[in-house]
Each structure stands twice: as C-alpha cells, then as structure tokens.
Design a protein around this nucleic acid. Sequence first.
DNA 1: CATAGGGATTCCAGCAACTGGAAGGTCAAG
DNA 2: CTTGACCTTCCAGTTGCTGGAATCCCTATG
Lengths: 133, 133
Amino acid sequence: MNIGDVAQRAGVPAKTIRYYEEIGLVTPQRAANGYRHFRAVDLHKLAFIGRARALGFTIEDCRTLLALYSDDSRQSAQVKAVAEEHLRQIDEKIAKLITMKETLSALVQQCAGDHRPDCPILADLADPHATQA
Amino acid sequence: MNIGDVAQRAGVPAKTIRYYEEIGLVTPQRAANGYRHFRAVDLHKLAFIGRARALGFTIEDCRTLLALYSDDSRQSAQVKAVAEEHLRQIDEKIAKLITMKETLSALVQQCAGDHRPDCPILADLADPHATQA
DNA sequence: CATAGGGATTCCAGCAACTGGAAGGTCAAG
DNA sequence: CTTGACCTTCCAGTTGCTGGAATCCCTATG
C-alpha cells in the first residue's frame, strides 16, 4: 500500500505518517520508485498510534506503548502505569480549564455586552482587587 | 524599574517579558546603559497580560484585549465576544479531555496491572472492535 | 583600584507535533 | 502525449515560551 491508502485506512494524514517515519515511529519499506511501501503490520501500527494519540498520549508515550505491545514479556502493570500517569495529567488539565471557565464565565455574565465601554472583564484584568461587585 | 523588578511584581518571568517585547506586546523604554526601563504603565500592562494568559487567552487575544482596554470608544460587547469565543474553546477542550478520560479510565479499570502480559489497554489500542469484554 | 557578585544584554537553539507549500518525479488513463 | 492524481524531498511556520552561552554593567568590598 502507498501512503495515501494507509492514511485513509489508519485515519492519519499522509504528512503525519511521513513525520512519524522521520522520528522513527514507523519504518515502512521503499518501492523501487522511491515510494513508501506499507504492509499490513505498518497499517496496524499507525492505527494503533492514531488511537493512542486520540486518547491524548504523547508521541513518547506511543513509543513506549508500542514497545510494550511488541514485548511478550511485558507486565500489564507497566502499561497501566503509563495510562494512569496520563490520566493524572488529563485530570490536571481538566481542573485548570474548569477553573478558567468558572472565573471567565462569571466575568462574562457580569458584562453587559452592549455599546457602552464599561466592562467588568477588562476591569478585572486591569486590577482584580478593585473589581467593583 | 529594571526587568527583574517588573518580573517579580507582575509575576511574569524576565525571559517572557523580553519575548513580549520582541513580539510587540510591550515597548519599554531604554536607559542609557541599554537596560530596559519600565514605567508603572508597563508594569500594569504586563500584569494585565499575565492575568489574561492565566485565563487561557492567547497572545493574540491579549493584543486585542489590550487594544480594547485602551480604546475609550470600545463597546463592552466587543470584549464580551472575545471572552465568549474563548469560553467556547475552553468548553471544547474540556469536553475532549473528559471523553479521553472516560475512555481511558474504563480501560485502566479493566487492566489487572500485574505481572502478566495480558492488557485490555493495549488490546483496545491494537483493535478496539475486538475488545473482549 | 581590582575584583566579585548579581544584575542586565543579545542571540541561538529547542520544545511538541505537526502542517503548509514549493519544486519536482511517477504512474495510469484517455 | 498529456493530464491529473499521486508520490518525493526540503524548508518554513505554528504557539509561547525556556534554556544556555557569551558578554556587558553596576555596586560593594578588601
């Protein structure tokens, strides 16, 4: 299969696949004409990576997960550890975003949003301690 | 004030302040010795930016917000629009992260996390449709 | 007055993970 | 033989800094 096919089937852009090759995540063979030639195992690997990325794993995590995947002597605890650490980071991000959301939506609600210049959002950014309720 | 003072008071690293100058967010004066010289207004601006960044606004948003802030003829609706758009993006990110979290934590819960190689996390990444309950 | 320290300066490089675009080679169909 | 859809490489840009090297400046102390 050529890169276009794999891209479509794995749901990963061709550009991204080339990038993955560049950083050594995948190593497709080459045809005589210089085209990359992907076998079923490459496709499978790319789909794996695609799903891992969709779950927010970093590229380095993907590398680790792929290594574990093809390591018969792995222990599921190793995989779980990677996933749990990632889960922690997701939780952190969510917490941060929710804090932002709360602060910001409170300000947005206080803002008239009309033609007048007075704006509690700007007022808070300018000086949060002077925020007139 | 020199950059170190401003950094401390505005809660923005000196490196970052230099970067902000480079991209034209702030334009401190220069002393005879080449040192950046910050006035109260610069400090205020940097604190403003710092707070906006803490709320997750992009640098471009900061530029817009600063422009609105110093525009007497602004309409609060303009500010509100920027904030609401940002809020939408925060919501999107949260939603994405929560989806990830749900999927991933379900997998993590199914994983024994012991010395054996069998792992539903890897199994799902390898082939989500074959996931054996 | 020499020097040591704690600032400050510039510039270059790198992070993460792509993405866009230019310039060109290849292949199958009509 | 040409057209159009692929493919190739390489370079640059994205976002928002951050680290480090080499060098300069200022103040205080011995």
